[in-house]
């Protein structure tokens, strides 16, 4: 329980850092760290499959993509004059929101938990392949769509 709380705090801390960091590179790296903490949370919650995916895809792939994009636009992003105070005041607003939400959290969750009969545990593979193959079809479609989209954005220079 305490470990769980600690990991959640770690996740939130890295999330905050990624919003508040002045340098985008640091923000991207702390986003990756947040992903790793989420992975640990998922492992701790007995959800290893989701954890593995989170680690490899979010912490790995997205970080690579993000950091490479940052390196492309790096020269320009410093010219955007942003009011840093707004970012630094996030913890304050977050605290206010957190307190307000805490008041609602318990009755809210209490209202939402019905007496669900204990479910039959089905493992991830069976669920995904036999009950949710529509989602797998969707995943295939999204890969096709993503590949085509990237192609549409970046191949036109060669052909036009």
């Amino acid at each position: 329980m305490n470990l769980h709380l600690f990991l959640l705090c770690l996740l939130l801390a890295f999330g905050l850092l990624s919003v508040m960091a002045r340098s985008l590179l640091l923000a991207g790296i702390s986003l990756a760290a947040a992903s790793v903490s989420l992975t640990l949370v998922l492992f701790e919650m007995n959800a290893p499959w989701a954890g593995v995916f989170e680690l490899s895809v979010c912490a790995g792939l997205i970080t690579v993509l993000f950091v490479s994009t940052v390196s492309v636009v790096r020269r320009e992003e410093q010219f955007i004059a942003e009011n840093r105070l707004r970012f630094y005041s996030l913890p304050f607003f977050l605290a206010v929101f957190g307190m307000a939400f805490w008041l609602f959290a318990e009755p809210l969750t209490r209202a939402l938990v019905p007496a669900v009969p204990p479910q039959v545990q089905i493992n991830v593979g069976t669920t995904l392949w036999q009950l949710r193959w529509g989602d797998l079809l969707g995943q295939l479609c999204v890969f096709v769509a993503g590949a085509l989209a990237i192609n549409a954005f970046f191949r036109n220079k060669n052909n036009a």
């Binding site: 949710r132 529509g134 989602d135 969707g138 995943q139 479609c141 999204v142 993503g146 085509l148």
Partner: peptide
Amino acid sequence: CGVAAARDFFTLYVFVEVTAVASYAL
């Protein structure tokens, strides 16, 4: 078509997202 076919809110969401990705590109 996937959206129209779905009988499950999550499957519906998956196909909605695919539609969105294709629309950004278009």
